[in-house]
């Protein structure tokens, strides 16, 4: 291997930035409730693909940036994303071998955990419980997972991120 160990960091950072951008991109009001958790999907992919490079630390950092970006309590997304990265890391060797539809179900579970943690935080600072639509983004994310997976895998192969 002649590749430097930090090869492709640029690609990882760019995909995370695009995910963050998609998170704040203005949408019509009815569509806002269905906006998938792009940042979580991208984080799950990179943790599955390169667990030795992307993990809890990156998840936490992305979370902090997201908190500043969307104006939530500092640490809210950091907490949930660090947790998600940890769980993904723990089972990455199994999930990697799953067929895509089974991966989607796993991703659904992870996305639901992310929402749940956020809801706990919102409840702790005494915001009213959100509507049932609060649980819509994980479902959208589940259906998007195969495409996210394939696109990011192709990107990873094209730029030989390792």
């Amino acid at each position: 291997m002649t590749l430097s160990p930090s090869r492709g960091s640029f690609v990882i950072v760019m995909t995370i930035l695009v995910a963050l951008l998609l998170t704040v991109l203005p949408l019509p009001t009815w569509a806002q409730m269905f906006r998938p958790q792009w940042y979580t999907l991208v984080l799950i992919y990179w943790t599955l693909a390169l667990p030795e490079r992307v993990g809890v630390g990156v998840g936490w950092l992305v979370g902090i940036i997201l908190d500043v970006l969307t104006g939530t309590l500092l640490g809210q997304h950091a907490l949930s994303l660090a947790l998600i990265a940890f769980i993904t890391y723990q089972m990455h060797q199994r999930v990697r071998l799953f067929p895509l539809w089974q991966q989607s179900l796993t991703v659904l579970a992870l996305l639901l955990i992310e929402r749940l943690v956020s809801m706990w935080v919102m409840g702790a600072v005494s915001q009213p419980p959100p509507t049932l639509l609060y649980w819509a983004p994980p479902l959208v994310g589940m259906f998007l997972w195969p495409w996210v997976y394939i696109i990011l895998r192709d990107l990873r192969r094209k730029f030989q991120v390792s």
Binding site: V56, G63, G75, L79, A82
Partner: peptide
Amino acid sequence: RVIAAIVISLALM
């Protein structure tokens, strides 16, 4: 690491 991340996040919040 994850315990540290959780503790720091909670403290920040």
